[in-house]
Design a protein around this nucleic acid. Structure first.
Lengths: 217, 217
DNA sequence: ATATAATTTGAACCATGGTTCAAATTGTGG
DNA sequence: CCACAATTTGAACCATGGTTCAAATTATAT
């Protein structure tokens, strides 16, 4: 019987797939997608390389699922912020904090490397589509802030790109050991980026509520 | 006679090396370092793949020289800003604008991917050392601003990282065709990031001087 | 015109790493 | 205990792409 299954339905399959995804995501974050081989991932998991192909069609599938999970986490974050904060400045603050936490503690590394070049076209399209939905949510918060007079009039696209850049680049350098945690980094970023958008004279204090960790595998 | 020269001194050598570096830098920016093959670079230049090795020892050398040139451009930028602007807010503004221009119009793509993982250890050390000098220059400007009372007291390292993140991430999405130029993007970012650091009540208007393009190959 | 230097070619070599798969092992139900 | 399903193994296969180099071509100096 043909051996390659790549979507097994046995009792251990789901747990095993999540275990593999966590390990792959961590490795991609630490070493980079290209510097991480399937033998490395297998070795980290204490299995042999052929076994990975029982659960996943290929290496790109691993990357795709990691990125997809991250984006699901970011979209969940956006929905949570919409439900749990009112003012645009508060919402933007929480989005930024949640974003940094999601990509550094939720699913480390796999979105922010943005290595969609390594994905084949239909998977890349799916990832890009989810990214766009999230970026739209971000821009909507900024536009709401301008409309409400909390933010000064500004180029919304540029403002959103600055925020995404600051947040996404954290996967290049953030490491948990020593120093500040992801939440503290996120709060520092959010303070600066939100204050940078305020209408002169507008007041802002960081909100009291704490963002959950979204996107955990 | 041994064919591999990799540092030829003939009359055409320097011009050819710069031509190769420009083409490689562009390709690395467009496609990513790993997705760009030596055959691709050769083909873009209308030469054959073996010829590249007459001028450069290996693929990593191409990456190293591109990144080194970008960092030289950023260090030149920092020096120019020190010579041509006085106030910390003005200096920071110009640094951010110049940074975005340097990495998108000067030497596209090769620093901001930060793909130093792909470099061997001694080259990586050189790149990281130059990067640190530039980041120190950036932090010094922020510290000067805090000391002068222009910026509010803040975590300087976090503020610098937000700035570097926003600026460096631009190579992931910035494309010259259509839309805003690098200078306009940089000015939008700089406005937001500098204003985000100001002491409440401090005034700031973008400076009138225009940053040159540093780092051009 | 000729000798020498510089530059280019392009096929071949080679290591790497993604992927396959027959056989083996382990788990589970009757 | 046995049959079958699920899972694992690990050597082999194979494509890719970095690199080499003998030979050829072009450029330059005499």
């Amino acid at each position: 019987m043909v051996q390659i299954v790549a979507n097994p339905a046995g009792p251990k399959a789901l747990a095993r797939k999540l275990e593999i995804l966590r390990s792959a995501s961590y490795a991609f974050g630490e070493r980079g997608y290209h510097e991480t081989g399937m033998r490395d991932i297998a070795s980290d998991l204490g299995m042999t390389v052929g076994n990975l192909y029982y659960y996943f069609a290929n290496k790109q599938a691993l990357l795709y699922f990691c990125q997809d999970e991250t984006l699901n986490g970011l979209l969940d974050l956006a929905a949570w912020v919409g439900d749990n904060a009112e003012g645009a400045a508060e919402r933007l603050f929480l989005l930024i904090v949640g974003h940094v936490i999601c990509i550094n503690e939720g699913v480390p590394g796999s979105l922010a490397h943005h290595d969609v070049e390594a994905l084949e076209a239909s998977w890349r399209a799916k990832i890009v589509r989810k990214r766009r939905r999230y970026e739209l949510a971000l821009r909507t918060v900024i536009e709401d802030g301008i409309r409400a007079g909390v933010f000064a009039k500004t180029d919304v696209k540029v403002a959103a790109l600055a925020i995404l850049g600051a947040a996404n680049w954290t996967v290049k350098w953030f490491r948990e050991e020593g120093g500040l945690g992801a939440r503290a980094v996120g709060e520092g970023f959010a303070g600066q980026l939100v204050r940078g958008l305020l209408r002169p004279g507008a007041r802002f204090e960081p909100p009291n509520i704490q963002v959950p960790v979204f996107g955990g595998l």
